[in-house]
């Protein structure tokens, strides 16, 4: 009986410790998620503007209008596309996207712990 009581107490301590940690992680990840979501809008607009201004979008469209001719000059076309790609803009948008996905993963993982221990 005494052993059962010790086990129950230890279990409860562990339960509360996990719950506290899950609460903190959940709070931080929800905050990060919404922050990144707000940041995603101007980042996407900046990336879109850079793609249009760099000429990458128009060059890319050539593939749909002159596909057979592009095949004849595929090397110059490929290098031209890579020259015009606004790498930094795309990287920053992808970084925000990766942050959003990671924040979502942490929310789901800790949400499960929270629900499991609270119910």
């Amino acid at each position: 009986m005494r052993e059962e009581l010790v086990e129950q107490v230890l279990y409860r301590i562990e339960h509360e410790r996990q719950l506290k940690a899950a609460r903190i992680r959940l709070f931080v990840s929800v905050l990060s998620f919404f922050g990144l979501l707000i940041l995603a809008v101007p980042t996407w607009q900046m990336t879109r503007t850079d793609i249009i201004n760099s000429g990458f979008g128009q060059q890319f469209n050539l593939m749909f209008y002159d596909f057979r001719n592009i095949l004849n000059y595929w090397q110059d076309f490929s290098v031209g596309l890579m020259e015009e790609l606004p790498v930094l803009s795309v990287v920053q948008f992808l970084a925000v996207l990766a942050g959003l996905v990671f924040a979502l993963k942490v929310i789901f993982k800790n949400g499960k712990v929270f629900i499991k221990y609270e119910i």
């Binding site: 128009q58 050539l62 209008y65 002159d66 592009i70 004849n72 110059d76 076309f77």
Partner: peptide, 21 residues
């Protein structure tokens, strides 16, 4: 215009495909 070309040693570009969208 949108152009696909090949650069030359004199700094000019030999145009291969030119499209007016």
């Amino acid at each position: 215009l949108v152009v696909v070309g090949s650069p030359k040693n004199d700094g000019t570009i030999d145009a291969e495909i030119i499209r007016d969208f």
